[in-house]
Design a protein around this nucleic acid. Structure first.
Lengths: 230, 230
DNA sequence: ATTCCGTCAAGAGCAGTGCTCTCGGTTTTG
DNA sequence: CAAAACCGAGAGCACTGCTCTTGACGGAAT
């Protein structure tokens, strides 16, 4: 491990500073990030930014990757903080952590889970970090079945669907009955919908006690999955 | 009813044509709609558009209202096409209609359910048409309870939440047990999440049989609500 | 120690955007 | 028929992402 040259170090610092300023602009001005504005804030000229990011989309990609990482960290940390056998507690902890992160970083959440930017195509590097929250969720089910705390119902899936869900389970390396995995994915879908509605929607402006509503809704999905109370 | 003047009629036609061209641009270029581009497509100069729409946001608002209306029509028409007592059939019909409309008009769906444009604030005119799909969904529950086909469980909601949900029910004029209404809203949230994942997400690219997956997931929510089969 | 090459910030410039204003010409209205 | 309203075109402003060129600086090899 040779020490990086001074040039490389100031360059890395520059990249970090650009990302930080861009993140700040993202929080205030939303997704239409202006390279020139970022450059102005750093006392630079717009063209200088291109020494560090070849295009605006590349800057956005860097921010997207960071956002995925931050959300994944928050979710996994919340899961790790609960007793492994408390399946329902883990479920609620993960859901609350995802919601809390989204409410704290609405612009970054919109960046990764909102409608995609038209011209922008997400590179393949994003699919792995993007799957961390759902993988954490179904991990709770996997642990529950392995520990005998969660007995999947005897239901099974009709055939075209069963293979698809089974293949998806094999992809993320969780060995669950497809029917149970499908219920877990329903919970993940519901969690995404809940957070998005709270952030983007104007529907539930009528629900002042959002924490209680959120917990109840995620609890419903825990019921659907069959998670036992602690 | 006096006949509108010729000028008023060509003006109305002009507005419609602008919206049509804008919708076409929306389908190809996404949400970043260019006034100048639609003006070019109409053989006009960009400033002429401002005779019909005071700003770009007003054009977007018009398109948003149209999209809400089209989705609401599709959903309500699908619901009306099923025997009133077939609760589960109506549920599936409404869900499928919403998904079909979204798949047929992805850009317009993104416009109304995607992440909001930063500077843009949706006017209050949008909340009524926006609530038509969820109102249709909980209308199925209302009809079911009224007809004695759907017997709500004995569950009740804890107090801060019960009042909120009850108030929401009063707002949309459906008299349902709050616990059941909450389950209906869970179904609506899930439906939105399902469609958004299919449209925006890159997660379930692994599920080739999307129709079957969609029906199964919405069926799970019908189970959660307690909708009986026909 | 000097040359040399890669890196850097800056500036000019291009094509595009939303939007405002003014200028003539047309149509409707009083 | 005249006045008022409306309409399209054009110029212009401030802004955007991005490219290209220029000149200065620094580390490294000769």
């Amino acid at each position: 491990m040779v020490a990086p040259s001074l040039r490389a170090r100031v360059r890395a610092g520059m990249i970090e500073e650009i990302k930080a300023v861009a993140r700040r602009h993202l929080a205030t001005d939303g997704a239409n990030l202006s390279l020139r504005a970022v450059a102005r804030d750093m006392g630079m000229v717009s063209s200088a930014i291109y020494r560090y990011f070849p295009s605006r989309d590349d800057l956005l990609t860097a921010l997207i990757l960071e956002a995925y990482g931050a959300l994944g960290d928050a979710v996994e940390e919340a899961d790790a903080g609960v007793d492994r056998t408390d399946l329902r507690g883990r479920w609620h902890a993960v859901c609350r952590a995802a919601r809390a992160w989204a409410l704290a970083h609405p612009a970054e959440y919109a960046l990764i889970y909102g409608s995609p930017v038209p011209g922008y195509a997400a590179p393949d590097d994003t699919v792995a970090p993007a799957s961390r929250p759902p993988v954490t969720l179904v991990g709770i089910l996997r642990d529950g079945v392995a520990a005998g705390l969660l007995t999947p119902l005897g239901e099974d899936l009709p055939e075209p669907l069963r293979s698809d869900v089974a293949a998806l389970g094999a992809l993320i390396d969780v060995d669950l009955p497809p029917a149970l995995l499908a219920r877990g994915m329903a919970g993940w879908t519901q969690l995404f919908g809940l957070i998005s509605f709270e952030l983007f929607g104007r529907i539930n402006r009528m629900l002042p006690h959002r924490d209680e509503y959120f917990d109840h809704q995620t609890g419903l999905m825990a019921d659907l999955i069959g998670l036992p109370a602690a």
